[in-house]
Computed example of a mutant assay.
Amino acid sequence: MLNDMRYRIEFQQKKEGGRLPVEGKYETVVECWAKAEGLKGREYYAAAAVQKEKTIKFTIRHREDLNEHMRILFQDQPYEIESILPNYSRKHFTTIRARRWNNGI
C-alpha cells in the first residue's frame, strides 16, 4: 500500500480574515502522500448518474486532524471533500472521496 502513495496532496482550510471570511483564500494545514484513483465500475456509474464523475478516491495514512470542511489540492486542482472514511481492511489508512471543485460552489 505504501508503494502506491505516489502523489503529494495538500489539505487546505479557508483563512479567517477580520470579521468576514476572505473569499477564495485558503491556507495549507496538512501535506501528505496519497494514493489517488478514479472510481471504477459500479461506483463510477453511480457518480455519473448525479454528475459527480470527476470524483477521486484518495488513500492516506490515518490522521485525526482532517474534516469535511477542508479541501484537497491535488496536481494544482482543488477538490471538495465528500467523505472521510476509515479503511476497515487496513486500519492504519483512511479513504477520502473528493470531487473536483467548481467555482460556482
Rank of each mutant, 00 (worst) to 15 (best):
G38C: 04
E27L: 09
P86E: 07
Y45A: 08
K14D: 00
E16P: 02
E27F: 07
T55A: 09
G17Q: 12
S89H: 12
N102M: 12
T94Q: 06
G24I: 05
L85E: 09
G18N: 02
S89N: 13
Y45W: 14
L20I: 09
A47Q: 02
L39F: 00
A46K: 15
D4Y: 11
T55W: 01
N3G: 13
E37N: 08
L85D: 11
I81F: 05
V50S: 11
E23Y: 04
N87D: 12
L66N: 02
Y45G: 03
G38T: 11
A48L: 12
K52N: 07
A34S: 11
R42F: 10
R8H: 12
I56M: 13
L85I: 05
P21A: 02
M5K: 04
L39K: 01
V29W: 00
N103P: 06
R42E: 14
F58W: 01
W101C: 04
H92N: 15
Y26M: 05
H92L: 15
Q51N: 11
N103V: 12
A34M: 05
E37C: 06
M70Q: 08
A98T: 08
A36N: 03
A98C: 09
D4N: 15
N3L: 14
A47P: 01
I84E: 06
A46R: 15
Y88Q: 13
F58A: 05
E31C: 06
M5A: 10
R97M: 12
P21W: 01
D65V: 08
G24M: 01
S83I: 10
N103W: 09
R99V: 06
R61P: 05
V22H: 02
A49Y: 04
D76V: 11
R99H: 13
K25I: 07
Y88D: 15
Y26H: 05
Q12P: 01
K91H: 14
E23V: 08
R6A: 09
I60M: 00
F58K: 05
V22Q: 10
K91E: 15
N87M: 07
E43D: 15
N103E: 13
E10H: 07
F58G: 00
I105T: 13
K52G: 00
